[in-house]
């Protein structure tokens, strides 16, 4: 070939492939260190309760709180499932709504100016104050909780998507125009993927608040069986260990949901962490040509 050797100019070295050793060190850093911080937190809690002789009805030891959960697991599990359901439904609806609103507002500037103040207003309303009228309108079903979760989740998604779409490189959009690309293809192939990172930032913020929304909804709009009411009963019975245990359970739901969203991000945006594309992302029959 007439150009053999042209590639041999040595135009810099690519990043080295990740070795197995580096990968395992990464796992230790990303999983081990957060786990250690939870253990430390429990140790500090234990230390304070023991050292200051805190009465069990004010703060139980971590072990008592955990036992209060495990020993009542058959009662708690359906309630946990209920909270998870409210969180997931609300999150999915809020995320879809947030994404759609972000896209529409980015594409129709007039609508953006019109709707943005209303969105900010919606977040300024204290959620607790919102719960009462929602119960009047929607009753004690799962619906008001889902609405509250969606209400909290959509906002960071919309703001981030809007921001992401308005910061797509204008030169890249011009390049697509020079190629003669129709606008809808430019939107799907360039603008949407370019918004992946801010979209996931919004989803992660939404995920951390989603459980809070579900619990507020349960407090305001439960007809008897919910994780939030279980905690209220425990509180009025001075069963402090169960109060703390339920709080830990709620926190665990929130963390799990957040980690799931992080996992989705890692899977959906491989270019953020990888040097080489995953095999499943490669085109079929990619190795054969002349």
């Amino acid at each position: 070939m007439s150009v053999a050797g042209v590639g041999g100019f040595g135009l810099g070295r690519p990043r080295a492939r990740r070795t197995a050793e580096r990968a395992s060190r990464k796992v230790a850093r990303n999983v081990g260190v957060p786990l250690l911080s939870i253990v430390l937190l429990l140790a500090v809690w234990q230390g304070i309760v023991v050292f200051f002789h805190v009465a069990p009805y004010i703060a139980p030891r971590p072990r008592a709180a955990i036992l209060a959960v495990t020993q009542n697991w058959s009662t708690l599990w359906p309630l946990v499932l209920g909270t998870i359901r409210e969180t997931v439904y609300g999150f999915v609806i809020g995320a879809a709504l947030g994404l759609s609103l972000g896209v529409i507002m980015a594409k129709v500037p007039v609508l953006q100016r019109l709707v943005y103040p209303v969105l900010v207003l919606s977040q300024a309303v204290p959620i607790i104050a919102l719960a009462a009228p929602l119960v009047l309108i929607l009753g004690f079903s799962v619906t008001p909780k889902v609405v509250i979760v969606a209400w909290i989740v959509f906002f960071p998604v919309t703001v981030n998507v809007l921001d992401g779409l308005s910061h797509v490189d204008q030169d890249l959009l011009n390049l697509a125009r020079v190629y003669g690309a129709p606008r809808w293809r430019t939107f799907l192939q360039i603008e949407i993927p370019a918004t992946a990172t801010p979209l996931f930032s919004g989803l992660k913020i939404g995920a951390t608040y989603a459980v809070t929304g579900a619990i507020i909804g349960e407090l305001a709009a439960s007809d008897g069986s919910s994780l939030a009411l279980y905690q209220e009963h425990a509180n009025s019975n001075l069963n402090t260990a169960a109060v703390y245990g339920t709080t830990m359970l709620m926190t665990a739901i929130g963390i799990s949901w957040f980690l799931l969203v992080v996992g989705a991000e890692v899977y959906a945006t491989p270019w953020q962490r990888r040097t080489v594309a995953r095999r499943t992302w490669r085109r079929a029959g990619g190795e054969s040509d002349g």
Binding site: T275, V276, R282
Partner: peptide
């Protein structure tokens, strides 16, 4: 032909400015 055959499956972030 132009010396980037090894990098077809790489993401651009793995390449130098010249590449």
């Amino acid at each position: 032909a132009y010396g980037l055959g090894e990098f077809l499956r790489h993401y651009p972030s793995a390449l130098s400015g010249g590449m």
